[in-house]
């Protein structure tokens, strides 16, 4: 029981011509140690939703509980919540500001009230977690490559030692290799450090490879919330709301229609390969 949302509603500029009902009656529970994918196209409310998780945006209606405590309670320590729920924004490298990488990563821990030495310890550990070694400590963050900048920015949030790490499209604008590197690093954080991860993305392929659970948002509502293979079964509905299942889902469904005995619920390339091989080797057609 880690984060629980009860009937959360959020309305932008209520009472004006620009009123937007961004979140509609959201009820969700994110458990400890989960790796969740949050999918939806632009304007589906997914970015607004993640900003609720650490109290940056306050729900117009509804309650949010973190470890059973109401975060809207009168004496709730919002700053502590923000260090427990780390939020990495889209293009996080745009928030870098310090003269060198190490001091930038120290910014979060220092705000938590840690001493300079403790902050540095944390920062070094965080940089190691994202694969940036000592040679980067005293470089200007603005002279790094795109992928390195992004990892430095993620380290800036990791250094606060969050229990939950929420990443809003961490791979936007990166090349294929850079994308894989970041996602593998995130997976490692989940596996080795036991940090819960919420990965916001538009890419089903990315998400299918890593997450245990997918939440699909559409027009401010939760459309599906299940394990990947169950969610991708609804590939026709996903298409109707402007999303798509991974390419392999389509290939497997098409093969099934042609009479191949394949498991159309496979979600990754490797699973698809195995089920196609099985179908071909058994030689029997359904």
């Amino acid at each position: 029981m880690s984060i629980k949302l009860e009937h959360v509603n959020y309305i932008y500029s209520p009472g004006t011509a620009y009123e937007i009902h961004a979140l509609k009656d959201i009820c969700l529970e994110l458990k400890d140690g989960e790796f969740v994918g949050l999918i939806g196209h632009t304007g589906s409310g997914k970015s607004t939703l993640v900003q609720h998780l650490n109290g940056l945006v306050k729900a117009t209606e509804g309650r949010i509980y973190f470890h059973g405590e109401d975060i809207y309670g009168a004496d709730y320590d919002m700053r502590r919540l923000r260090s427990k729920v780390g939020l990495v924004f889209q293009y996080p490298e745009h928030q870098l500001f310090e003269v060198d990488v190490l001091s930038d990563v120290c910014f979060g821990p220092k705000n938590q009230g840690l001493s300079a030495e403790e902050a540095q310890e944390r920062a070094k550990a965080a940089l190691a977690m994202v694969g940036l070694g000592e040679e980067f400590y005293y470089q200007s963050p603005f002279e790094l490559s795109g992928g390195q900048k992004r990892r430095a920015a993620i380290a800036g949030v990791l250094a606060m030692e969050p229990e939950i790490l929420v990443l809003d499209e961490p791979t936007a604008g990166l090349d294929p290799k850079g994308r894989d590197e970041i996602l593998n690093q995130i997976q490692k954080l989940h596996q080795e450090k036991g940090i819960s991860i919420v990965l916001v993305s538009h890419s089903m392929e990315d998400v299918a490879r890593y997450v245990q659970r997918i939440i699909v948002m559409n027009q401010g509502e939760v459309l599906f919330d299940d394990v990947p293979r169950e969610v991708f079964c609804h590939y026709k509905e996903l298409e109707q709301v402007g999303l798509a299942a991974p390419q392999v889902t389509y290939i497997l469904h098409a093969l099934r229609e042609k009479g191949f005995f394949v498991d159309e619920n496979a979600t990754t390339i490797e699973e698809a390969r195995d089920t196609i091989l099985d179908a071909l080797r058994s030689g029997r057609q359904a």
């Binding site: 650490n54 940056l56 923000r82 939020l87 928030q95």
Partner: peptide, 11 residues
Amino acid sequence: KIMKAQIARGA
């Protein structure tokens, strides 16, 4: 956006 991102880092 930047303000929110820094608040998320405890600013």
